[in-house]
């Protein structure tokens, strides 16, 4: 029997974890994986086993990932739960950084103007009636929000909109739209809007309530880890 040169197997309560060496060549690794899995230590009656593959500091492409999955699937009773790599492409990393960043803008968004941001946005200034602020993440306005704000523009329902003075003509989060009441109501200081869990509409509340409804706003690092 061949000794496992590149792959270490560890059994845990949740299933198997395969640690792949990240110094050997990819082809060698696949061959060894095939060999290991072919060795019959699984019988037909056993329940499904979940497999976690840890790649270490190796980056694999989509095709390589497919090859990996195929080999594992060939052998019955094995289900790949996740493939974990410590590295990502620079491009992805930059995108990631941009999307989790908070961009600062210091201006007045006037009627007819649109401020579009591909991340969270902190606006130091007003959004005037007829102006529009769009972000893929959260929107924080340090000023009067009297125009339209659209948070989570790419579908993130977790996004929130907060303003020091909230008197918007419309709020949009992901695909949900709400408008201000027709009775010409005065705005409210220090308010925020968000979608409640499983809710279908935007709820307005005091900014201080965000601590409860969106605790993850505090933890930037956790958002990185969760992607």
């Amino acid at each position: 029997m061949t000794t496992n040169k590149w792959i270490t197997i560890k059994g845990t309560r949740d299933g198997l974890t395969l640690f792949m060496n990240d110094n050997c060549s990819w082809d060698e690794l696949l061959i060894e994986l095939d060999e290991i899995l072919s060795a019959k230590h699984v019988t037909v009656d056993e329940p499904l086993i979940t497999v976690k593959i840890k790649l270490g500091n190796r980056y694999i492409t989509r095709e390589q990932e497919q090859a990996l999955l195929e080999i594992t699937r060939k052998h019955n009773k094995l289900v790949v739960d996740q493939i974990v790599s410590n590295v990502i492409l620079k491009e992805e990393a930059l995108n990631w950084k941009e999307e989790t960043d908070i961009k600062l803008h210091n201006k007045v968004v006037r009627s007819g103007q649109v401020l579009e941001v591909n991340s969270d946005v902190l606006l130091i200034g007003d959004v005037n009636p007829g102006g529009k602020i769009i972000a893929t993440g959260n929107i924080f306005v340090l000023g009067n929000l009297r125009g339209i704000a659209h948070a989570g523009a790419k579908g993130n329902r977790e996004a929130v909109i907060a303003a020091s003075y909230m008197a918007p003509s419309q709020l949009r989060i992901a695909e949900i739209i709400s408008r201000s009441p027709d009775s010409d109501k005065e705005g409210v200081p220090m308010e925020c809007g968000f979608i409640e869990k499983d809710g279908e509409q935007i709820i307005m509340d005091r900014i201080s309530s965000l601590v409860k409804s969106r605790p993850q706003l505090n933890a930037f690092e956790r958002r990185i880890m969760n992607g």
Binding site: R110, S111, G112, Q113, N128, P129, G130, G131
Partner: peptide
Amino acid sequence: VRDADRIIGLLE
């Protein structure tokens, strides 16, 4: 006022 706001934006 709304139109003035628009014009100010353009003037900027």
